[in-house]
Design a protein around this nucleic acid. Structure first.
Length: 504
RNA sequence: GAGAGCGUAGCUCAGCAGGUAGAGCACCGCCCUUUUAAGGCGAUGGUCCCGGGUUCGAAUCCCGGCGCUCUCACCA
């Protein structure tokens, strides 16, 4: 007997009894796994229209067929109550022996919490005032052979069977969603966010495209990639860390507005803000600069909030902000000046190190000035950024794919939106000067040779594309998972990904 | 990657000066045709994460492994 295929004898008693029930049902001529059911109404709809469809004193009234999973049962001799939960709501069902017949009633006694059933019946209110369905016919739709821990709350507030262990919830997400239906709402909101993004961009003539996830060379971000072996070509391929370089090739090809909502993969640790595969929106607009993109993204955030939440007011943990108000717009170096009292643009590396240390920012010797500035930003400024804010005009060294600032060559035309402590995206006037781009790649190569593991490799084909000419372009990336965390008030990325990565 | 904590019944947990495992809910049987943690009576259920060690004896102590959680560091 192997572990993978447990024999009957290996099953614990509960599972053995459930399987025996299957046999009992089959012997009684019942198929525990029939093919379909004619459901006529959602429970939620029935509840909404309840008052106008209730039966009369003779139990006569319009008949409805609901279908769902049994989440509680109370059997009392010749009658029984159970709650049936479908996708959006649950409703009590009253099963009486003299209404459904002795045969069906006896079968019903073999039903369990977690079984799927269909019920045809009439609407009525119980003595205790609960909207219920009086069963005329009960049909088994799928028998469960494993018990589902359905949450129960007693009058004194004691909670039984709460399925709260995070590991179990994520490993067995099907149980989590079945038992904690409120968690389904997170994924409904997530779906609304994504469809709102599509609606917004489609309305503005952006073309949705698909670019390779499997790439011979990775790029578009500074991150470690997953690598794999492509047998037919006998060479290493990478899972994309970003789709940026492919989308820009499309601008060279003549598409003026493109976007992609794609899974990116980064070979790095996981924690409450990081999952190795995550969803990224990137969009590019020809003839636009970063300021145009700033304006556009402000509208986008507003649109998504309204579509997903019905309001621009977003509460996250203990903070509330309004995305309907104009975002604060502030320069990178002005924020640092606020925090340190000094203008750090052009400050020597030595001086910068001293300054960072004097403010308690932890830095290491191998950090360049861009990295140190970024660390200071993270430590001194970002924790205080709650109101929606665009930070713009970033130091050159942090951004190998962004265009130099039109007035200040030590800066790039880049901005990042922040709100409620979240970094929500990254955007810039895209670098389209092939000579400058090659210099930036070379600088990245030197960093790599110096030991930096997260550098942008030189992409010759991308350079050639730029040599053919890319129009001036503004582009942006937005992390969909984090946006979802923000809009669903979740403190872990795992809560907004249906099947987050876990060690196996 | 580092530190702290955790892993016992289907679920949530208790037990740990080392003596052979317990509660609530779920599950099973009987009674009960308006209950809702239904109730009453009764019963069952466990490789105490895995592997070593100490011991007459380990869920409990020690070592190693696996997994999870939280915090910190890095990338979005």
């Amino acid at each position: 007997m192997s572990e993978q295929t447990p024999q009957h004898d290996d099953l614990n008693e509960i599972l053995r009894l459930r399987r025996a029930k299957l046999d009992t049902l089959r012997e009684a001529g019942v198929n525990p796994y029939p093919y379909s059911f004619k459901k006529t109404i959602h429970v939620s709809e029935l509840i909404e229209t309840f008052d106008s469809v209730q039966e009369n004193d003779e139990h006569q009234g319009p008949e409805f067929s609901i279908a769902g999973r049994i989440v509680s049962i109370r059997i009392m001799g010749k009658a029984a109550f159970c709650h049936v939960r479908d996708e959006f709501a649950q409703m009590q069902v009253y099963v009486q022996k003299d209404k459904v017949g002795e045969q069906v009633f006896n079968l019903f006694k073999h039903f369990d919490i977690s079984d799927w059933i269909g019920v045809r019946g009439t609407a009525f209110v119980t003595k205790t005032g609960e909207k219920s369905l009086r069963a005329l016919e009960v049909t088994l739709l799928s028998k469960s052979v494993y018990p589902l821990p359905v949450v129960k709350v007693s009058d004194d507030g004691t909670v039984h069977d709460a399925f709260t262990d995070k590991e179990s919830r994520f490993r067995q997400r099907y149980v989590d969603l079945a038992v904690n239906p409120e968690n389904r709402e997170i994924f409904r909101t997530r779906a609304k966010i994504i469809s709102a993004v599509r609606e917004f961009l489609d309305q503005r003539d952006f073309l949705e495209v698909e670019t390779p996830a499997l790439q011979p060379l990775y790029g578009g971000a500074l991150a470690k990639p997953f690598s794999t072996h492509y047998n037919a070509l006998d060479r290493t391929f990478y899972l994309r860390i970003a789709d940026e370089l492919y989308l820009k090739r499309l601008l060279v090809g003549g598409f003026e507005r493109v976007y992609e909502i794609a899974k990116d993969f980064r070979n790095e640790g996981m924690d409450r803000y990081h999952n190795p595969e995550f969803t990224m929106l990137e969009f590019y607009q020809a003839f636009a600069d970063f300021e145009d993109v700033m304006n556009l993204s402000e509208e986008l955030f507003r649109f998504v909030c309204v579509k997903a939440l019905g309001t621009t007011v977003v509460t996250y943990q203990d903070k509330t902000v309004d995305f309907g108000k104009p975002f604060r717009r502030v320069r990178f170096f002005d924020l640092l000046k606020e925090a340190t009292g000094k203008d750090l643009l052009g400050v020597e590396l030595k001086e910068l190190v001293k300054l960072a240390e004097s403010h308690g920012v932890e830095i290491t010797r191998d950090m360049g000035e861009g990295k140190i500035l970024d660390e200071m930003m993270k430590a001194l400024v970002r924790p205080k950024l709650f109101e929606p804010t665009f930070i713009y005009d970033y130091p050159l060294s942090l951004s190998p794919l962004a265009k130099k600032h039109r007035d200040e060559p030590r800066l790039v035309e880049r901005f990042q939106p922040f709100a409620l402590g979240f970094e929500l995206g990254n955007a810039f006037s895209e670098l389209n000067d092939p000579i400058d781009q090659r210099e930036r790649f070379d600088a990245q190569r030197r960093l790599k040779e110096a030991g930096d593991l997260e550098t942008q490799p030189v992409d010759e084909d991308f350079l050639r594309a730029l040599e053919y000419g890319m129009p001036p372009t503004g582009g942006m990336g937005i992390g969909i998972d984090r946006l979802t965390m923000l809009l669903t008030n979740q403190d872990s990325i795992r809560e907004v990904i249906l099947f987050p990565q876990l060690r196996s």
